[in-house]
Design a protein around this nucleic acid. Structure first.
Lengths: 231, 231
DNA sequence: CGCGCCAGTATACATCTGTATAGACAGGCG
DNA sequence: CGCCTGTCTATACAGATGTATACTGGCGCG
């Protein structure tokens, strides 16, 4: 486990007055959060960050951390909460864009991918800690995903009603879409723009499969119970 | 996947004969792999294991590790490969069970969940390293998932042909199913048996949605281009 | 002004990590 | 038997980490 922490001090430690050691005027929670966000990336999850690493990146003394967070866990929860806010932003933005167009799926996926690009770190937090985090992390992540699912479910039902159709188990369809989009989003985080576009197209088709399927299953249930076998 | 593990005495360090220090007769790669598997769990990914930790669990000296693996990375790759074998086992077993029944989806999902229960650690490796691992880990994981997708795609096409139906973009449907199942499987790893059963039911319905959807989209494309709007 | 308070820092320590070096023991072969 | 070779262990070291203790300097308030 060789630490390849290259020089990198240029960005953080440049404004040292001639005096011995400059004292940071005021450290805010946000400063520390920003430093943590700068550190996490495709290969670093929050749970693997060390306290000293974060304070080093923030340009403060290790002990100063405790003035703002009791734990590293507290930092992680703060990050997960921020990621949740990012999620809500996606939903809001998607509804705005959708209400102005005919299509539904594509603009929504586009919003998701846009937010993924700008808030990659935050959404990555959700992905990582939902799988590898401690129990409390996982619960926090699950809560945020659940919120996303619930909102999506509402939209699915409304969409179907607007078109005079039914959708079986919209909650399940919403869950499938959510989990699928997040799983694929995880692989898209470090993709090139053209790969990203391809993933977007794939996502759109997959989501349409799920929506069509949820609608088709109502038809089979009431119309043709025998002609189309249950796979 | 039978684990032909050696004696591997007690937990860590209990069986010291009167002599100074007992020397391990023969250390095998498998001993070290088993120790690593014992250590990883819901909150521990391979990338966070330390060399000393693994050797401690294996009951050997830290340096003995190097006789069998050049790196911790090499251990991780070995684990991912084992997880891949576990995947192939799932496909084989599912095909066996399916050929004996009418239903397709449910027995396949059941096989997956069974394997998840018995090889939870291995499949967890795939989940973790696919998200948080280094680039080479991610590539290795992606390779295994791709294999799973390809096999599933073949089955999807055959299933549709047997019933005289078409499926649009079977590769995409297979990818959607694969990613969805793995994402949900990740949350099922530490679930109770009844939660697990509920997740299984959900999975079955979701997969049917995707399959139905992939079939319904062929209908809309050729029959009614206007009556059913694209969502 | 004096003074306490607080947000910052420096130093220190025990513990962990990876790994380099050297030693001990068993087995095969002359 | 002697010796070499391969495998495992012991010791040691430099660096990292979390945190306890003691410090320092600027701020507002009496």
């Amino acid at each position: 486990m060789q630490t390849v922490r290259a020089v990198h001090s240029s960005a953080t430690e440049a404004s040292s007055p001639p005096t011995a050691t400059a004292r940071k005027a005021l450290i805010t929670r946000q400063d520390i959060i920003d430093a943590a966000l700068r550190l996490i990336g495709p290969h670093r999850s929050v749970s693997t960050l060390s306290l000293r690493e974060v304070t080093r990146e923030a340009g403060i003394a290790p002990n100063s951390f405790y003035r703002h967070f009791h734990d590293m866990d507290e930092l992680a929860v703060a990050l997960i909460d921020m990621a949740g806010q990012s999620l809500r932003q996606i939903i809001r933005e998607a509804r705005l864009r959708v209400s102005a167009t005919q299509e539904v799926t594509r603009p929504s996926v586009a919003v998701f991918m846009d937010q993924l690009a700008s808030d990659a770190k935050l959404l990555h937090v959700l992905l990582c800690e939902g799988i590898v985090g401690s129990d409390s992390y996982k619960q926090a992540v699950e809560r945020e995903l659940q919120y996303f699912e619930d909102e999506l479910c509402v939209d699915l039902v409304r969409l179907a009603e607007d078109r005079g159709q039914q959708v079986t188990e919209p909650a399940l369809a919403a869950k499938a879409i959510t989990r699928l989009v997040f799983a694929l989003g995880g692989t898209a985080i470090e993709a090139s723009p053209e790969q990203r576009a391809a993933i977007t197209d794939e996502m759109v088709t997959m989501i349409r499969m799920i929506i069509f399927g949820a609608q088709a299953m109502t038809l089979t249930a009431q119309e043709t119970p025998a002609t189309r076998a249950v796979p």
